[in-house]
Design a protein around this nucleic acid. Structure first.
Lengths: 363, 363
DNA sequence: CTGAAAGCGCTTACAG
DNA sequence: CTGAAAGCGCTTACAG
């Protein structure tokens, strides 16, 4: 008995793992792909497939004995669940689609970090769509990402195209907007007022005594335009708005562009005593340009930026800017979306995270 | 006849779009999710489901008349294919999994841009996994991403853990490594020699006449360590290697850390006449620190970096560094992977993209 | 060129 | 707590 017992075990072992893999024993009609499936796990653990499924997805519904057998089988076989099959059968995908306008801008990678941290625990998979600041691209990416049946969508900004709105509506997927605050209090959104932030930093320049304040903006996305509005309002309130000191171009924001635009600003409005750059990259370029031309910052010209990227605190002079809660925007937006997906819709649907003026040497 | 014909059309239209949506007519046992499916499209176009499928995936196998009817039905119904179902049925997912160590480092977002550009056309979906420089995280992410049955995997660097190697092997998925070159010529890889790049920039310092050259490194990933090896070799070849001028810490590279390490370097090796920082961020921090302490760069201390991020050309002084072909690494790696997936394996499996020394004012 | 039917690998009411 | 069977929405040999 003992001997034949151990022989049998050997035979089984050999059979399954070496000479005749299960896949080959399947009928010839099979389209099997030689992958280890849940059925294999169930067979190995001597339980029904659905019990194996439960042991994985709802372990509390399975007795400890069976659960452990299934877990052992999973380890023995190196089983990996097939997401496509799970998603198809269960009607939810556990994917969250994120649409951001750029990956080369630290603002959005910080947002992504927050999103990841909020979602990693929940077993969600994040699908990143880089729209490159293009509505057409955003439509295309949303269409592609919707094919993955996301459980939720994270959007940057408020101004989506009509088609995007339609697609989102007919997909009936929960959506949270990031980085700005909508007028409609019913919309899910996490951000801060771009307008007020623009107003605040311009006000800071006014308080410091600057009067001929220019504005340098690029990309011209909605956030830049709102900051520009805040700038205008602050100057109007102070009675010193002059549109000839506004320089707006649609090219992407870079240090090189900031350097160039500083030159153009000085050429078209030589009396400028301060410049508000719509983001830090432009401000860095402007300051480097000043240094090369021997223009003292801030003595001859004050320069400020927006976002408070890491270099702002370290440059010489250090750069006055608005610190934006990017990581938290991502984190809170993802958390809000999770709640919406899981059905417990919070009372507060619009979260204002605010911003902080960082007054430094450059002004 | 004419009248009844148009009445019929109206009736059909009203029925399907307003009063009795198809989903509600389904038998009560149905688990239908009210989504528009291929079957709906086929019904609308009066063709078999499989013909509708072919019209989408293999249009050349369908007569023009039917193809147009199907396309019209897709538009009428706003049909979006279900990726999970397609992937499950077809055995390929059209997803490419990318594992990178960081999203906040421009090096890797540049790589991603190259990957996107190479893959967008082919209808691939990119799954981004941020490993945060952690082997454990890399294993976990790979496991998760493998559940999506990727058609291919893009890896950063050469030194993966044993488990990662095993998972990759048993998944039998094509893999391309990025950023460095393996010894094994059979492995698919796109990059350049980190060792040679480190050697080259150190050699540049030697040629410029510097002799007491320090090394500042952080993160201590494999690429940093290879650059350090290149640095050592160059100094040994010149007979001026001194391990007391090496400062290696495992913290993430930031401007702030560069500023701090510059201070520590000067404290432990005050005779340094040049410092090679293992990347540009550290070099920026080092230079800012020098400026604050009134240390002239390069007169009293030369500083160089690695990667040639945009600020390097603009800072004052501009920063000597090694320009790395990040975008092209991503683009060529993705292209190579596509070829491997589509079965036409190229003769050249290891692509050396080289690097460029950018000699500027800081040395 | 077109189609009926089986199958991909899971999950889930429904029973027991 | 456990299980047999149907179903999720596609694709694909196999026929015609």
């Amino acid at each position: 008995m003992e001997i034949s017992g151990s022989l049998l075990e050997c035979a089984i072992d050999v059979n399954q793992n070496h000479f005749m893999p299960i896949a080959q024993q399947a009928p010839s009609k099979s389209r099997s792909r030689g992958r280890v499936t849940l059925a294999d796990v169930a067979r190995q653990a001597s339980v029904a497939t659905m019990t194996a499924s439960r042991a994985i997805s709802h372990p509390e519904q399975v007795s400890q004995a069976l659960r452990m057998r299934v877990e052992q089988a999973i380890r023995d076989l190196g089983y990996l669940p097939n997401r496509a099959a799970r998603s198809l059968a269960s009607a939810h995908s556990n994917v969250i689609a994120v649409l951001i306008p750029s990956l080369s801008n630290a603002v959005f990678t910080d947002i992504l970090a927050g999103i990841q941290d909020a979602l990693d625990a929940g077993g969600y998979q994040v699908l990143i769509g880089n729209t490159r600041y293009s509505d057409a691209e955003e439509e295309k990416l949303l269409g592609i990402n919707l094919q993955s049946n996301p459980d939720g969508v994270l959007l940057t900004g408020l101004s989506q195209s009509e088609r995007v709105r339609q697609m989102l509506q007919s997909s009936r997927v929960p959506v949270v907007s990031m980085m700005d605050l909508p007028d409609d209090p019913q919309r899910l959104a996490v951000g801060f007022s771009q307008f007020e932030a623009g107003y605040t930093i311009t006000r800071h320049l006014l308080v410091k005594g600057y009067r001929r304040i220019g504005f340098i903006g690029a990309q011209l996305d909605e956030r830049t335009l709102k900051r520009a509005e805040g700038y205008r309002q602050a100057l109007r309130d102070a009675g010193s708005h002059d549109p000839r000191r506004e320089l707006l171009v649609s090219d992407p924001s870079t240090i090189a562009l900031g350097a160039e635009l500083l030159g153009r600003m000085l050429a078209m409005a030589p009396d400028c005593d301060a410049v508000f750059c719509c983001n830090d990259d432009l401000a860095y370029g402007a300051i480097y340009q000043c240094q090369r031309r021997g223009i003292a910052v801030p003595a001859r010209l004050a320069v400020c930026g927006f976002n408070d990227l890491p270099a702002s605190a370290w440059m010489n002079p250090s750069v006055t800017t608005i610190a934006t809660p990017r990581y938290r925007v991502g984190f809170e937006a993802a958390t809000l979306l999770r709640k919406a997906i899981e059905g417990d819709m919070p009372a507060v649907r619009r979260i204002d995270l605010g911003f902080t003026l960082m007054a430094r040497e450059s002004t």
